[in-house]
Design a protein around this nucleic acid. Structure first.
Lengths: 149, 149
DNA sequence: CACAAGGTTCAGTCTTCACTGAAACCTGTC
DNA sequence: GACAGGTTTCAGTGAAGACTGAACCTTGTG
């Protein structure tokens, strides 16, 4: 499992160890762990853990929990972490689409030159449309159920 | 424009110059260019061009055209290049979802431990569903129109 | 106050990789 | 067969960045 999360880590731009941390935090018991515990669990230095945990929490994939009357800080995967991953990947694609769109004038409108960009713009419009018509995200649904109780 | 495509290049894992090549090939006139032309256009060494063009064509973003009675090789962006970009990004997300799914048993089924993964699986099911219900890709539509003529 | 547990910062090592110039490799042309 | 245009391969350089051990800061506890 950790090895698989690591695979996805170097497929993305995430540092190797951050991937392992995520992998471990997904299956560990209890769900919240101290930096120390994580360090020994995945066999990395505390220094690296410090860096990677800050990274992960700054991008909102893990949440920081402090228990009262204890100087230990606990970490836990955010429930919406993977949803964020998906959302950001999509957002990144959308911004790529916007870049292409902004560049459209550079090619002019003659069919030979503008054709390439026109096709590209079609693709991103297609994508945009899909998500506009998409059902609500699981997290939204979950929140709604939560409040209905 | 080239600068923007470059931004998206280092956002992804693509070498800087490959991004510039794509940017240039999107707006150049004529649409097909020799390695030489591209090299001077974006100011990179021919060696680098050779490497990056091979990379780009191996992943199917540019197509190689050889004109008869000439040893020059011409390159052109594939019409479906950006569609491939989108598709692969999605595919990558889907494979991430599969990894998470495969790891589900590792957390067991107690609500405290399995809950995290269950939520994650929901997200990827949601994504899967969106694309199952999606309209056909622009390229498919385009091909259909082509053949209808 | 001394101590120790938890965490962070710093300097250094090591790996990876994009890029380049120069040499080598075709392949048509004279 | 020599030659020249076009491209590829190769060794080398430089930069980016992940990871670590060691020193340092902080904060409850005896």
């Amino acid at each position: 499992m950790e090895r698989l999360a690591k695979y996805c880590a170097d497929q993305d731009g995430v540092p190797l160890i951050a991937g392992r941390v995520l992998g471990w935090l997904m299956i560990c018991d209890p769900p919240e762990q101290s930096a120390q515990q994580i360090a020994t669990a995945i066999g990395a230095s505390r220094a690296s853990l410090s860096t990677n945990l800050r990274l992960l929490s700054s991008v909102g994939f893990v949440r920081v929990l402090t228990k009262p009357a204890s100087r230990t800080v606990y970490y836990r995967v955010d429930d919406d972490a993977w949803e964020k991953v998906v959302q950001r990947q999509i957002a990144s694609l959308a911004s790529l689409g916007r870049i292409l769109q902004d560049g459209t004038p550079l090619a002019g409108s003659s069919p030979d030159r503008g054709g390439r960009i026109a096709v590209a713009n079609d693709v991103f419009r297609w994508m945009q449309q899909i998500f506009d018509n998409a059902p609500p995200l699981p997290s939204t649904t979950r929140a709604a159920e939560e409040s209905r109780r």
